[in-house]
């Protein structure tokens, strides 16, 4: 991470059209490998953006950087108008410290490919953990909130089961409820159906569909399910080599891709399925 003060980046994004998420010239490297290459990406409030692309193109990295699971090498990420990876200091931006990160992280929730539920807690305890021990909510209130969310994802009847007693699809639905219980403004889904048996994928995608329809959440989703992406996205970004090769409305990107790499990728995916 570059230690000097960044002066070319605004300290805040203002105005009615400020995006909920903004990547500005974001570069991420692992050693010599450049995984994100000066990436620019805006996501508007309430927008559902899907990221597709070949393996290794940096899709997961985009989400992990937003979740602050990875550090940034160059550029700045903004969330809800404020810098996420950096904090204002002396009129410029410096790398965020842990306290600042914790404040900003409250805006973001994430669901993982392998659910990552806490195995020693029941479904509802998983959901209550954050509200009680991070937000400091009274237990009763956290329980009510969690019960509502488990109801919403269709898991109310399994609330007292440990994850080991739940199928993959059920675990993923609990994981979505757990993330939502923190009331994030931005939700991240990283291949949340990839580890599931085909017959239970629908129960998870239906939950996400519901979120798109009923909530004003801003969502970023990485998926290999093109049909699902086409159905529910406001916008689809095709990633290639750590950059956005092409993006647009799902009907345009899937129906009439402009770039050769997009066409190749989409036809390869079609053949495989």
């Amino acid at each position: 991470m570059s230690q000097e003060t960044l002066s070319d980046f605004p300290l805040e994004l203002e105005g009615a059209d400020a995006p909920m998420v903004r990547f500005r010239q974001v570069t991420k490297r692992y050693g010599n490998l450049t995984v994100l290459d000066s990436l620019d990406l805006d996501v508007a409030e309430g927008e559902m953006v899907t990221i597709i692309g070949p393996s290794g193109s940096g899709k997961t990295t985009v989400l992990r950087m937003l979740m602050t699971l990875e550090t940034i090498n160059e550029g700045v990420i903004y969330v809800d108008g404020k810098p996420l990876t950096h904090m204002p200091r002396n009129g410029g931006l410096v790398p965020a410290d842990n306290r600042y990160l914790r404040k900003m992280r409250a805006n973001i929730g994430m669901c993982f490919q392998h659910f990552n539920l806490f195995p020693h807690m029941t479904a509802i305890e998983n959901c209550m953990e954050g509200p009680v021990h991070v937000l400091g909510l009274p237990k009763r209130e956290a329980r009510e909130r969690s019960e509502e969310l488990l109801e919403m994802v269709g898991m109310a009847d399994k609330r007292d089961q440990h994850p080991s007693r739940l199928s993959g699809g059920q675990q993923q639905r609990v994981a979505i409820a757990r993330a939502l219980a923190m009331r994030p403004k931005v939700m991240l889904f990283d291949e949340v159906t990839s580890a599931l048996d085909p017959e239970v994928i629908g129960e998870v995608t239906n939950v996400i569909r519901k979120l798109v329809g009923e909530h004003n959440l801003t969502m970023l989703m990485v998926t290999h399910q093109m049909g699902f992406a086409k159905d529910i996205s406001d916008r689809v970004c095709f990633f290639f080599g750590g950059r956005i090769e092409e993006q647009g409305k799902p009907a345009d990107l899937f129906g009439n891709p402009q770039r050769e790499r997009t066409q190749q990728f989409l036809s390869a995916v079609k053949e495989a399925s």
Partner: peptide, 30 residues
């Protein structure tokens, strides 16, 4: 304890101490 457990605890914005006490240590204990 799998890395995913640390990451899930961080995604819930738990402090390092809470991550250890509430999530990691109970699993390590077993």
């Amino acid at each position: 304890v799998p890395k995913g457990q640390w990451e899930a605890a961080l995604a819930l914005n738990m402090s390092p101490a809470k991550r250890m006490v509430r999530v990691i240590f109970p699993q390590a204990f077993l």
